[in-house]
Amino acid sequence: MSDVSAPARLMSDAETDTPARRLRKPPRLPTEESPLVRVSLIGLAVVLLLAFLLLPLVAVFTEAFRQGIDGFVEAVNDPDGIAAIKLTLLVAAISVPANLVFGVAAAWAIAKYEFRGKAFLITLIDLPFSVSPVVAGLVYVILYSTSHGVFGGYLQSHGLQIIFAVPGIVLATIFVTFPFIARELIPLMEEQGTTDEEAALSLGATGLRTFLTVTLPNVKWALLYGVLLCNARAMGEFGAVSVVSGHIRGLTNTMPLHVEILYNEYQFAASFAVASLLAALALVTLGLKSLLELRYADELAAGRRH
C-alpha cells in the first residue's frame, strides 16, 4: 500500500532517467490524472494538513519557549509540575500493563478458538472507544463516589477513597485505553491461525511454553504497537481523568490536568511548557509507530500495513 501502482512507478523511473529518455516519456495512462490535477491535489492536501494538523503543534512549542529555555525549565521544574509528571507516569505504569494482560488474554481466547458470541464480545471490547471520556469518568463517580456512589456507603464505612484519589484516576484511564492492545492483537492472531501452536504442542511443549516461545514472538511487534498507542492515550487522557480527579494540586493532578489549571490561571507560558512535554511524547509515539509500520509491516495486523 505504501507504493504507488506499477504503471506510475514506471513513469517516475522514466522521469528520473536521462533527458533523452525523458523526451520519450510515455503518454499519460487513462487511469491517471493529468500532472496539473495531480500537483493541485497534492498541494491542496499538503496545505490543508499543514494548516489543520501541523500549525497547532508548532504553536505549542513556540508558546512553550516564548520566555526562553529558562522560562521553560522554571515552568516544568515546579513542585506541582513534578508531582503531576510523577502521577502521570504512575498511572500509565499501572494501566498499560493491566490492559496488556487483558489484551493478550482476550486475543488468545478470541483468535485461537471458535465459540458462540465472539462477534458480540469483540463489540463489547471496542465499546470504550465510542463512549465520551466525560461519560467514562462519570460512570466511575456513579459507582464509587463516597457521597452518591452505588458502593459509596461501603467505601465510606471502610475508609476507602476511589474518586478524587489515585485509584479513580487509574480506573478511568484503564477504561479509556481498554481496547488498544486487544484490538491490535486480535486481527493479527486470527490471521496467524493455530497451526504453529499445534505443531509446538504435538512436539510435546506445554501450553505455557508454547505461548512463550511460539505465540508471543509471533505477535511481539503488534504487542509493542498496541502498548505504544495505549501508553500515549494513558498519559494524555484528560476528560475522564478530569471528572474523577478532583484537581487536588500535588496529589491528583496529572500532566494534562496541570496544563488546564495553569492555563485557567493565565500562566500561559508554564501551561504550554508542560503541554510541550506531552506534545513531545506524542511525536515520539508517532515516530516509533511509523518505524514499526515501516520495518515490521508484515508482523502487524492487516489494517496497519501502510
Binding site: 492536501a45 501541523l54 497547532p56 504553536a59 500515549a232 487522557e237 476528560g239 494534562p256 506531552l278 509507530k289
Partner: peptide, 19 residues
C-alpha cells in the same frame, strides 16, 4: 505526511485544545 495524520490520536486533547 502519512505519519502526521495520526497526530490528533497521539496528541493529548488538552494540548490540542490550548494550541
Amino acid at each position: 505526511l502519512d505519519a502526521m495524520i495520526d497526530l490528533p490520536f497521539a496528541l493529548p486533547t488538552a494540548v490540542a485544545g490550548i494550541a
